Simulated assay, not measured.
Amino acid sequence: MKKSFFLLLGLIVGLIAANAWAEGSATKDECVIKCHEAAAMINSKGLEAAIKAIGDPKGPFVWKDSYVFLMNLDGKMLAHPFHPELTHQEHVLLMTDPTDKALFVHFVNLARTAGHGWVEYMWPRPGKTTPSKKLSYIYRVPKHDLFVGAGVYVGGMIY
């Protein structure tokens, strides 16, 4: 009886912890929604307002463990809330992840061809330096040579 109680207690605690972790992790659906909201903002309020909002680490496009970033089709990062230094480069096309994947080239190619879709690569979680597997949704902004992206971290707990 005592053993069953502790087994049940352990299961309940585990479920609560898993649920709390899941609530702190962005979903793929949220990424799609946030990207479409960011694109709508670009079309309604203009590029400068969008750059300011998207680049703000406490702004409307940062949530849970995710965020929206903004690039043009030439590979220039226009707004990134956690790596603003990327916006100072002419382009980020030569950057690779730890597996040598040219992630930004994949982003640009996807935005140019299909207009939207998912790319898997390695990238550090906000506030961390160790890369984690990430899956980002890329969405080309209608009527512009721009795209936005947002992603989910795949597997593992936030450390």
Rank of each mutant, 00 (worst) to 15 (best):
F69I: 02
P131K: 14
D145N: 15
K34D: 03
L86M: 12
L103A: 11
V68K: 05
D74I: 06
C35K: 08
E48G: 06
D29S: 12
M157A: 15
D97V: 04
L93S: 00
L70K: 01
M122N: 08
V108Y: 00
P124V: 04
G55Q: 12
V108M: 04
S4Y: 11
D65E: 06
K143N: 14
A26R: 10
L94C: 00
A22Q: 13
K3Q: 11
F104Q: 01
K76D: 08
P84G: 01
K3G: 03
G117P: 10
G115R: 03
K58L: 12
K45I: 04
K2A: 07
N19S: 14
V154H: 04
K134D: 03
P57C: 12
M95G: 02
K34A: 14
E48T: 13
D74H: 13
G115Y: 10
I16L: 09
T27Q: 02
L94A: 10
F6N: 08
M1S: 10
H88P: 00
L78A: 03
T96A: 11
A102V: 00
G127K: 05
P57H: 10
K143R: 03
T96G: 01
A17M: 05
E48S: 15
H80E: 02
L135A: 03
L73R: 08
F147R: 04
V32G: 01
H36K: 15
S132R: 12
K101H: 07
D74K: 15
Y121T: 01
L93D: 01
A40P: 07
L9Y: 13
A26L: 06
K76I: 10
G24K: 15
P131S: 15
G115M: 12
A111Y: 05
F107A: 06
P124T: 05
S4P: 00
A17L: 15
V68Y: 02
H36S: 07
P142D: 10
L93T: 02
V119E: 03
A79D: 11
S4E: 13
K133A: 03
L73I: 14
L11V: 15
G46C: 04
S136T: 10
A79V: 09
I54L: 11
A50V: 11
G149L: 08
K134Q: 10
V108N: 00
E48D: 15
E30V: 04
H144V: 04
A53S: 14
F5W: 07
G149I: 11
Y121N: 06
E37Q: 15
V141G: 04
P98D: 13
C35F: 06
A53F: 02
A38P: 03
F5C: 00
F5R: 01
A38W: 08
S132H: 11
L86I: 03
Y139P: 07
A38Q: 08
F82P: 00
F61P: 01
P81K: 07
L9D: 09
V148F: 12
D145Q: 13
L146M: 06
N109S: 14
P57W: 12
K45C: 00
N109Y: 03
Q89Y: 05
A17H: 09
H106Q: 14
E120H: 02
N72S: 10
A20P: 00
N19V: 13
L110V: 09
E85W: 13
P142A: 08
